[in-house]
């Protein structure tokens, strides 16, 4: 048995994912990050919403919570505030996090609550059969954009930075070692963190866009992967089709929310109560 397998709940296998899906790589990367940091499985909770990504917690041999569509962050907020000592991980897809759960995402970022989010971006609603998502590239054909997608996609990193996120990173399922390493770094960050993992859905997105082979889709992702330095030299038009990878934002100055609550608010409230008693 490999060391990371301690974090895998084999009883719940098989996974519902299609052959060649990137979700398996993300699953293993997270388990390996747990293992590298040697965290007790009982001190970890993995929370997810709905979709292909939403099924991932079931396969971790940690505390796991499969919630409602887009709202994993809200459950995780309750857990983190109650138990600041635990590692709270949220796994979300692009539709889950940025469409139905967009509001929760920006507020979790603004609060800087110490939740570690892994945002799996495959650019489509996979589990429901391939409908357009807020991260589907323009012109792409999906089940609900049969004539091509006319909506521009979000830039999740820019959105999160504007929402005051303190740790934002991006990797792709092609770069497995880097993906694991950046997930590990995000786990060590004190506040809210998001690692966007670009993944392939060759079945429900690639198939309709001349990429039904997972290797072809992996290549398509690779062609769009650039370093942060390369990305910064590009024009806005060029940038729209590229994914800069690595740590895109890291700010360690701000307090984590539950720490701030318990250190600042609770202390201030107790002092105020004492003063009122003296009066």
């Amino acid at each position: 048995m490999n060391k990371y397998e301690k974090y895998i709940r084999y009883q719940t296998f098989p996974t519902p994912w299609c052959p060649g899906c990137g979700d398996g790589i993300v699953l293993k990367s997270i388990a390996m990050a747990f293992s590298d940091l040697d965290i007790d499985p009982n001190d970890i909770i993995v929370v997810a919403g709905i979709g292909c990504s939403g099924r991932m917690p079931t396969f971790f041999n940690t505390n796991t919570l499969h919630t409602t569509h887009g709202r994993a962050l809200t459950f995780a907020t309750g857990v983190k505030l109650s138990r600041p000592d635990k590692l709270v991980v949220v796994i979300s897809g692009d539709g889950d996090a940025l469409a139905i759960g967009g509001n929760h995402l920006i507020h979790a970022a603004r609060r800087n609550i110490g939740i570690k989010m892994i945002l799996i971006n495959n650019g489509v609603y996979g589990m429901t059969g391939g409908q357009v998502s807020p991260l589907t590239p323009q012109k792409f054909v999906t089940e609900t954009t049969p004539y091509g997608n006319i909506e521009p996609k979000f830039h999740p990193a820019e959105l999160l930075i504007a929402a005051r996120a303190t740790f934002v990173a991006r990797e792709t399922v092609n770069r497995t070692i880097q993906l694991k390493e950046v997930i590990k770094k995000s786990f060590q960050h004190k506040g809210f963190s998001v690692v966007e993992a670009i993944s392939n859905c060759h079945i429900n997105l690639g198939r309709k866009n001349n990429m039904k082979n997972p290797v072809k889709m992996a290549k398509w992702i690779a062609e769009r992967t650039v370093t942060k330095a390369q990305f910064e030299k590009m024009t806005p038009a060029e940038r729209d089709h590229k994914y800069p990878v690595g740590i895109l934002q890291e700010n360690t100055d701000r307090y984590e929310y539950s720490e701030l609550y318990h250190k600042h608010i609770v202390t201030a409230a107790k002092e105020s109560a004492k003063k009122n008693k003296k009066k």
């Binding site: 962050l73 907020t77 857990v79 109650s82 507020h107």
Partner: peptide, 28 residues
């Protein structure tokens, strides 16, 4: 806060109940 108990104002009622469920499952 005076009693060391947790209070949070969330971004809407959906998230309020979500946070309550997370906390309840954490023993609150």
């Amino acid at each position: 806060p005076q009693m060391g108990r947790d209070f949070i104002q969330m971004e809407d009622e959906i998230s309020a109940l979500g946070a309550c469920i997370g906390a309840s499952l954490s023993g609150k």
